[in-house]
Write a protein that binds this DNA or RNA. Structure first.
Lengths: 238, 238
DNA sequence: GTCTATATTCAGATAGAC
DNA sequence: GTCTATCTGAATATAGAC
């Protein structure tokens, strides 16, 4: 108790400030002066603790993704242990993969909505090193979930499953990025921009059914047929 | 014929170079020196022709979005004229909205895949002015398509339709952005990164069924019930 | 570990000759 | 319209005192 209050140390204050500022303004749009000013530390501290701005960005992600991917593997292990060799349900696979992600939004110690939004913006980040420097962190997780989906959907071509995995990632990325591209013309207020722990739960209720619907959609070559089976109305013009 | 070859004028060469470079490196990551160097024009030409870097970005988008949104309105007008007051089919609405977008990828004079990728990266762009400065250009189109979807899906709450509109935009944005987030762990090569006119057609075949499946997915509160109706197997653990 | 001061490079923008 | 030359500010990074 030699110190009355225990401030987070310099290193973590820098990481917290960088996480928030990278989310708000992007990597190129955030200067190290802004980061250190916001964190209340000296400008030179970034290079002392991390070596460079690029290394700082890597650490911002690494400290969150380590937990996320461990959690994802853990959830998949649990499910497969209980399934006793049977294929998992697609909905359960998605719940584990995206549920672990959305859980981060409810827990400030895991980054909360701030990190979730930052992550949502990285998928389409122009700078290559930002998208690719975590390939190693993701490799095992994606491979395991990919194979779980292959087993869950044995009649769907594997290439199609990969595509839909991509598309689910894209939809989820946009959802957690918190931007509202239709804001100007949307009457009803969406809770996209809400903060707080319940934001992630709202997101799950909205997004998960959409993803599952997309994953299970009829295959390209059968779209027209099944379309007409569901609505057997006489063919209209074009 | 006083000039043997007719090079594009300075203004358009700047726009073409900026379009490509903004796509590759982002707005903050692209300097005006790089743009003018790439276009083979003088550095001062950007400020002479456009006034500022920000105004240049606006013009890069404006010249493409003008066509896109006119085309989208035209397609909707045609469909509604042929429907004779009846609601349109959801699949037709999506085909018009996203088909107009994907058509740009097949036509170099409309920007081709370069503009499509640039556009795919703007939805989650950190800089506010990039996402918001076209709200006016989009307003009418989004309002018209939104109302068409409301009529096409009268039993779905309007807020849910807006949400799924967002999610479709997110999935499509990622698809046209051309990034392959799963590249490191994907065995099969996707044609995400292919250029050329046929890339957009591949995209349509892959993405449209997914979007339609998501749009028509069971509503959140009914997910569990319909889930069990489709697969009436005895309840497993959890 | 933290600070001041500074080196070095590069950014967007502009004045003024042609 | 196009060019050279330059202004002004800000960026990352580091050297060296404390």
């Amino acid at each position: 108790m030699s110190e009355a209050r225990t401030l987070p140390d310099t290193r973590e204050r820098i990481l917290d400030a960088a996480e928030r500022l990278f989310m708000e303004s992007g990597y190129e749009g955030t200067s190290m002066r802004t980061i250190t000013g916001d964190a209340g530390v000296n400008l030179a501290a970034v290079n002392y603790h991390f070596g460079s701005k690029e290394a700082l960005l890597r650490e911002v992600f690494r400290r969150r993704l380590a937990w996320l991917n461990r959690e994802r593997l853990h959830r998949l292990d649990e499910m497969e242990a209980h399934a006793g060799g049977e294929p998992l349900k697609p909905s359960a696979i998605l719940s584990a993969f995206f549920g672990a992600l959305l859980h981060m939004g409810t827990d400030e110690s895991l980054g909360g909505m701030t990190f979730l939004r930052l992550l949502g913006r990285t998928l389409t980040e122009p700078a290559d090193f930002i998208r690719t420097c975590f390939a190693g962190e993701y490799a095992e997780v994606v491979d395991r979930y990919k194979r779980a989906l292959f087993r869950a959907l044995p009649d769907v071509p594997r290439e199609e499953i990969i595509w839909r995995f991509h598309l689910m990632l894209g939809a989820m990325s946009y959802a957690i990025s918190g931007t509202d591209a239709l804001q100007a013309v949307t009457d009803c207020e969406l809770d996209l921009n809400n903060d707080g722990p319940q934001a992630a739960e709202h997101l799950a209720a909205r997004v998960m059914p959409f993803l599952l619907g997309g994953l299970r959609a009829p295959l390209p070559q059968f779209v027209t047929n099944q379309e007409q089976q569901r609505k057997p109305e006489p063919s209209k013009a074009a």
